[in-house]
Simulated scan of single mutants.
Amino acid sequence: MSDAVAQFREATEAADIDAMMSALAPDAELTSPLSGRLTFRGHDDLRILLTAAYGSLSQLRWTEDIGDGDRRVLLAEASVGPFRMTEAMILELAADGRIRRLNPHLRPWLPLSLLAVKLGPRLLRHPGVMRRAARG
């Protein structure tokens, strides 16, 4: 297992935003699974997004790490309020081994909708982040 991937797994389960950020490349990006259009880039914007996202989940547990090399898939289970959800996170690694791209896939619809309701107000407090993400 890549050190950055292991660090990211442990950090997200512990909601340790500083450890999450150190696992990411400086130019890391994440395309929103909620909109499919918003792309968050760079440590400053990703810190805000990941703080809001992982602060909205509970009981996160990564169950599988699939692949090797510069592309990995992590599978997880978590709760949003009273609802259970699953996540498949596709990670692309940079040349230095840190995570360059995060592509989360979440299901089912009901907890995903509740997650959107929780994230919306937290992200709207940062209109600059949302504007930059909307540029694609």
Rank of each mutant, 00 (worst) to 15 (best):
H126Y: 13
L34Y: 00
M1E: 11
A6I: 12
E87K: 01
R61T: 13
L74M: 06
L115H: 07
L112Q: 08
A28F: 06
L124Y: 10
L57V: 04
E29A: 13
D70Y: 02
L114N: 05
P104T: 10
I99C: 09
W62F: 12
L30V: 13
R107W: 14
A15P: 00
F40T: 02
T63E: 12
D16W: 05
M130S: 07
E92H: 09
R37K: 15
D16Q: 09
G36S: 11
L75D: 01
L74E: 00
H43C: 08
A25F: 08
S58Y: 00
K118D: 08
T31E: 12
T31I: 12
A19T: 14
A15V: 15
S56D: 09
A78L: 03
E29Y: 08
A76E: 00
A15D: 10
R125P: 03
L74K: 01
R47L: 08
A4T: 09
P108Q: 10
P33I: 09
S56G: 12
I99W: 03
E87D: 10
E13R: 11
Q59F: 01
I48G: 00
W109C: 04
D3Q: 15
M85Y: 00
A53W: 07
A76L: 03
A134M: 14
E87Q: 14
S32R: 04
G81V: 05
P108A: 05
A53K: 06
L46A: 03
P82F: 01
L115F: 07
L114V: 12
L93Q: 01
G136T: 11
E87T: 08
R125A: 12
G81H: 03
E10F: 09
N103Y: 05
V117I: 14
D27A: 15
G42Y: 05
A78H: 06
G81K: 02
P111F: 06
D16T: 08
H105L: 13
L106S: 11
L93G: 05
L74P: 00
V129T: 15
A11F: 03
Q59V: 01
R135T: 14
R100S: 13
G136D: 05
L24W: 05
V5P: 07
Q59D: 15
D27F: 04
G97Q: 08
I48T: 13
H105A: 14
S22C: 04
L123P: 02
R71N: 11
D70G: 09
S32N: 03
E13N: 12
E77Y: 00
F83I: 00
G128W: 05
V73L: 13
D68I: 02
S32F: 06
A94F: 03
L46V: 04
G97N: 10
S35L: 12
L38F: 14
L57E: 01
L93R: 04
L124K: 07
S35A: 14
D70I: 04
R84F: 03
I66R: 05
L46N: 01
R9C: 14
H43F: 06
A116Y: 02
S113E: 11
I90G: 01
D45T: 02
M20E: 11
V129C: 13
L110A: 15
R41K: 15
G128N: 06
Q7N: 15
A4E: 06
L119H: 06
W62S: 07
I48F: 00
G67R: 05
L124E: 02
G120E: 03
E13K: 13
S58C: 01
D68N: 10
L102Q: 10
R47D: 03
L106D: 05
M20I: 15
M85I: 07
R122E: 14
